[in-house]
Design a protein around this nucleic acid. Structure first.
Lengths: 340, 340
DNA sequence: TTGGAAAATGTTTGCGCTCACATTATCGCG
DNA sequence: CGCGATAATGTGAGCGCAAACATTTTCCAA
């Protein structure tokens, strides 16, 4: 190691202990908030810490304790609004709980192998828990025994585990579909998100269920992949179908594409076709027309997710979380059929 | 530390060394790509690594070597497209160079104190270099001596240092402004971004310069803060001014707001008013009308930035980087004046 | 008072690794 | 064939900290 001269060496607990007139162990105890330290001693130590400019050496602490206090996050590398918003929530909880967050990006639509590589990289860096902001479903089997070794959670419903902490995707689809039916539309078409994401499938299923409940046979799904481009293509498909009056699009970004395609085909929104989407990104209110959409509390999703991993790491029992409610935000992209 | 029983202990270099029939030092040398190891020995070691399922213990390596191979990134916590795209670039370079990336988010418009706190947190976690994806200008003095201890770079031009690796903000403003003037507009109005960001000011200055070069006195700047909402407010201001025919908006997201406000006021884009913006986010092509915008290669910005910090950390001399060129993408939001 | 428990603090050890230096194997060349 | 140089490998120590255990101090009840 770099046997550096004394003057450029960072101060360590020995330095603090010397100044405070205690043992290094006492310094360690004070710093880690251990009980059984006299307040007066603690003060002396803290003063010494300030005096010498000491800061805990994370690597050493982690080597000695076997704890890294580090969370890993696997992101899909699209600049999707939702992902960054969720990450923000994860980070805020991590900071509160004294965890560091390290990220690993993975290309969109990567093979499971890339996810495993990212997973291993984060594990290798010492992550004690891993949050995957990507579809976990199709990874479950690839991940295999890894998730036993390292607590791992997906960002939304992870295959039926812990749904309660996260946004109810079925409620989203129900709110959107019922809104359109309640306006008087005979049926509702659906542009789905990437098929690998569970929420995409959950929404599709619930959209179908709602239609059947109302005695309507669901039209075929128009598949897309979350991107605005895919939404545009879906929109062209829809524009080619004569009697469509209402579409439930699985994300705001796709809705921009859908609306563009409809307008190019001479179908106006909402006069000819109503469009509801999901997310309520910042630009949703500034689309033309402003998007009626089902808002997801992304930051809260991130917070809830991070709390859950930390609970798993520390083997604390899960704290019941408020269920996160999606919220229908009605703007200008929906109206009763026939411009009526 | 948790004196765990042998069976649940993770394999270490001693285990590998035993299986490979070499010393731990040789294992270490093989793993860190040291020269002077016989290929055959290296193979034996790698085979043993696989056999026992060994993975380097990052904390121990870092304690012994004094290196953490960790980069810190400070993000402003808005889900801005550009930020996540840059982060992606940073990460890809980090992964290539064997660095981990840890992030710390800071609220938008925070006091410098929050940045310092984030900086200290990252430093405390062992970051060897720090990337600030936020306006560095107003932080320079607050950061003070910290940047001597830990290499720090901003994401774009860091006060005149190393401009060449990053996007030329003046070229952006010039391309946008000249595009409008060349279309025949008599003058160009400007909606600026958050005043704390240097690129915002750089663009404003260059916009002014271009106008003066063409003998036009710049109209007053309409201030905004990057958000679509602020763009909308700016748009209302502009709509109240009778003879505006061309606007240079400092970001796509604000342009959505500006266009919305103009349309609400009965001014159509581009027939009555042309709008150019900056970024070319994924939704830019799906605005109504599709945005003419100056594209910034965000991922490359992130890559260049990361390369620069790593060069600073490893005291390698700076590798000359291709200058990153912004690119004017002409779509439908600009046209010659008077609908002509 | 004093004994005994609990609180407060100290001592020793080792986490897993890499550094510096020591030693041994290998090679080229006169 | 032998000797010095270089390549290849080994040995010992210590990075900074927290766990386990040892010791001292404090406090209160009998």
């Amino acid at each position: 190691m770099p046997r550096r001269s004394a003057e450029e060496r960072a101060p360590n607990q020995v330095d603090v202990a010397r100044v405070a007139g205690v043992s290094t162990q006492t310094v360690s105890r004070v710093l880690s908030g251990h009980p059984n330290v006299r307040p007066e001693t603690a003060h002396r130590v803290m003063a010494a810490v300030d005096a010498v400019g000491y800061r805990l050496h994370a690597a050493a602490a982690s080597l000695a304790s076997g704890r890294t206090r580090m969370l890993g996050v696997i992101l899909v590398s699209t600049a999707r609004y939702s992902t960054s918003a969720i990450l923000l929530g994860v980070e805020s909880v991590a900071a509160e709980e004294g965890y560091a967050v390290t990220t690993a990006s993975v290309a969109q639509h990567s093979a499971p192998a890339s996810f495993l590589e990212a997973f291993d990289r984060l594990e290798g860096q010492g992550a004690e828990g891993i949050v995957i902001l990507a579809p976990v479903g199709f990874l479950a089997e690839a991940l295999g025994s890894r998730t036993e070794r390292t607590p791992t959670v997906g960002h939304r419903q992870a295959d039926g585990v812990g749904d309660d902490a996260l946004v109810d995707q079925r409620a989203i689809a129900r709110a959107a579909t019922e809104h359109l039916l309640d306006l008087g539309h005979r049926t509702v078409w659906h542009v789905s998100g990437d098929e690998f994401w569970q929420e995409s499938n959950a929404r599709r299923e619930e959209w179908e269920r709602v239609l059947r409940e109302r005695g309507v046979t669901p039209p075929p799904v128009i598949p897309a992949d979350w991107s605005p481009e895919s939404g545009y293509r879906a929109g062209r498909t829809i524009a080619a179908i004569p009697d469509v009056t209402a579409v439930f699009v699985s994300s705001d970004e796709m809705a921009f594409g859908v609306i563009r395609a409809l307008h190019e085909a001479g179908r106006t929104v909402p006069d000819d076709v109503s469009v509801v989407s999901v997310d309520d990104i910042a630009l949703a209110a500034y689309a033309a027309p402003a998007l009626t959409t089902v808002r997801q509390p992304f930051e809260d999703v991130g917070r809830a997710t991070a709390k859950r991993v930390i609970e798993m790491i520390e083997k604390r029992e899960a704290v019941a979380t408020e269920p996160l409610r999606p919220e229908l935000v009605v703007r200008a992209s929906t109206a009763p059929p026939h411009g009526a």
